[in-house]
Amino acid sequence: MKLRLTHILLLSLLISLAGCVTSRVEQLRQSNTGMAADEALVILGRANYSEFETEESFTDCIVSALSRGSNPLNLVSEDDFKDQLYPWFEARTAPTSADDLARLFAQPGVSDQIENTKIRYLAWIDGQTVTTDQGGGITCTISAAGGGCFGMSYWEEDASYEASIWDLKTLSNAGQIVADANGTSYLAGLVIPIPILARPGNAACKALAAQLKIFLLDTPE
């Protein structure tokens, strides 16, 4: 019983030590949306050849959030979609604007493939999480008499992502959703290192996924 109480107290302490995250979501709707029960969505991470590109873990997080909870959406995996429509959605060949969709659909087999997979919407996710500031210091020592970590270090992260939603039925841009989140994480050395983590990437993912679901199902906020 004593052990259980200690565990509960430790868990409560860890939960209370989660860092603070500030997040913001904005939406721009350009047309009405709505999804039939058999229609699907594909989430694509915008890839480029620079050092920064949308992290796969972020698009995985969005997919996971959209396929669970109330009103889960039908999702086609990014890899399957890119394979089925190869070579039209590779980093170098993917359309950069919804205006290119008509030209793309004129290619042999493309519209048939989209129709077979019943994909109604395509959401491009563009952005990344970057460390904007860091400082402090922590030192750990080990000796025959024992050891420990002392000091404090921090790092501030900014997560900024945009989802561009394209309607493959009307071949047009349905709208954009922007999610920003930032937070500071700490690592405090009080004999043992205690992390106090803010997870702005996770906050941005959850905010973006929630808004995307509302946007697509056309449910008023």
Binding site: D83, Y86, P87, Q107, P108, G109, Q113
Partner: peptide, 10 residues
């Protein structure tokens, strides 16, 4: 890895 057949005009 996955190397699919391209959807192009014949």
């Amino acid at each position: 890895g996955s190397l699919p057949t391209p959807l192009v005009k014949k």
